[in-house]
Structure formats: structure tokens, C-alpha cells
Design a protein around this nucleic acid. Structure first.
Lengths: 136, 136
DNA sequence: GGACATTTGTACGTATGTATC
DNA sequence: CGATACATACGTACAAATGTC
């Protein structure tokens, strides 16, 4: 239940509730969340407040929203191991909009990337939710 | 100028304008942006729309907002080099709210973290905007 | 310490646009 | 085409943090 007099804002409380549903598996990967209007009604919130809660979960990469369709729990990605040579420098950051398109990052998801530099030159950019880097 | 009939939404256009001011140095690091109400008036937008534009810049790590004070252009962070031993596995992802507090990540900024695993055990968690990993 | 102005944060309602089914 | 559902954008109000006097 949302407690309006709690210190945490309502949108954060709703995000916490939904995150618990997701991480516990009660809402399995691939499943749609209730649509925004329904969440608003169920919890006695405005739709903008629900959208802020969903934004929190998108930033954590837990859900992806498709316009005109709904918000679903993301499938845990198969992770590829990428070897990093010795002497490399790895920098992690958020991608720009152009990079997202280039790297095939789904719209609505919030995923970091890793740059691997060697000898002052960029050797590769890797997407966080489907790559692990290994040092050899 | 904001073009209301353009394909890009108004908040994105404002974010682009402000980003250009920042990256060009016309608004130097440490400087405050005009406050939200002023930006709204200057560009003929609602305050909520201005807030969405600022959110875009916060996600890119370009600005930081302090409640009751204002939004300022961030100082370029001093980056620490963290050596990663051979045979390690590096996983990058977004931090939870609890981790953000633990790692001292400023509220309002969107920053990834890197986990370094060695021998199946977590050896460290590093914040993306102030750390580079180096392989030895 | 209090009083006050300034500024950001949260939350509501409403309307309209646009993508999907 | 219509129904559904998310996206953008406006206005409004009040709460909470900050800085100043």
C-alpha cells in the first residue's frame, strides 16, 4: 500500500512495490505490467505519478516500455564474454542516443556501455546487459 | 528556438539547446543554469517540460540539480585508475537506490557501476563517472 | 533562532498526439 | 477504421530545501 505521509514519495513507493513483484518472480520476465491507467486506479494515484514510478524501473533496466502497447519485464539477457587484452583501459558510461541506435539498444531501456581503449585508440564499445568483460 | 511542429519533442529540443551552451563553454562548469521558471518563460514552455529537458541532461551527467538552489553544470570529474587483475570478470550495470547511497552517487545523476569479480567473489564496485579500469 | 523569498520536488487534473492492436 | 495505451504538454497547487536578513 502507498502511504501518503511517508518520507518516500508515492512514485518511489510504487516503484518499490513493482520491483518486489518483479525480482520475486511474481511478475515473470516477458510479462506485461498492468497498464498505467490501471496502476493509477489500483493505487489511488495520478497517471503522471505512475509514469514516474515506471521511469524509476526503466532507469534500473528492469522493464521496457513500448508505446501503444505496454510495459513489460525484461528477459534476462544471454551474456557474452569479451576478452580484454592487457594494458587496456576500460571506461563505463551512458550511451548517447545515436550510439543506442547503433548498438541496438532497445528504446526505453537504460543500459550502460563499456569502452575498451588500447594504445590511445578505441578498440570496442560493449553493451552492459549482454556483455561481461574478462581480463586475460 | 523551439519549433513546436518539429519531429523532436520540445523538451528534447531544449535539452539540445542547453547541451550546446554547455559543451561550447558558453555556460562554464560550476555555473548555474537559469532557474526552471525562467527557462520556461524564455522558451515559451511549461515548467514540467523544462524539467523533462533538465532530466535529459542529468541522465547524461552534464548537470546536477540541488533542491532549493538550482541546476549547475558539473565539473569534469577527476578520474581514478583502478587496476584489474588478470583473470577477472567485469560486469557493468545500473546501481540500485541503496547502492547509490553507499557509493556516494549524487541524487539526480545517472551513472553506471562496474563490478569486478575474481574467483567467483566480488572484489569491488566502481562508479563510472570517476573511475577507469586498467588491465595489468 | 525566526521570517521570508527563491527554487526545486511531488502530485494532481486535463487535453491532445501517436503508435499498436 | 476504432479501441487501447503510451508520449507530450499545459496549468495548478502545495511541500520541502536553501539562502538571506
Amino acid at each position: 500500500m502507498i502511504n501518503r505521509s511517508a518520507r518516500d514519495p508515492a512514485y518511489q513507493q510504487l516503484a518499490d512495490l513493482l520491483r518486489a513483484e518483479i525480482t520475486s518472480g511474481r511478475i515473470p520476465a516477458g510479462e506485461l505490467l498492468p497498464f498505467e491507467g490501471r496502476l493509477a486506479q489500483e493505487h489511488g494515484l495520478g497517471r503522471q505519478t505512475v509514469r514516474k514510478a515506471l521511469d524509476v524501473l526503466r532507469r534500473e533496466g528492469l522493464v521496457v516500455t513500448e508505446r501503444g502497447y505496454g510495459t513489460r519485464v525484461v528477459q534476462q539477457q544471454e551474456r557474452e564474454k569479451v576478452p580484454v587484452p592487457r594494458g587496456a583501459l576500460i571506461r563505463i558510461r551512458m550511451p548517447s542516443e545515436a550510439e543506442r541506435a547503433e548498438l541496438g539498444i532497445e528504446a526505453g531501456s537504460v543500459v550502460p556501455v563499456a569502452e575498451v581503449w588500447l594504445g590511445g585508440r578505441l578498440r570496442g564499445t560493449y553493451v552492459g546487459d549482454r556483455t561481461d568483460l574478462t581480463t586475460s
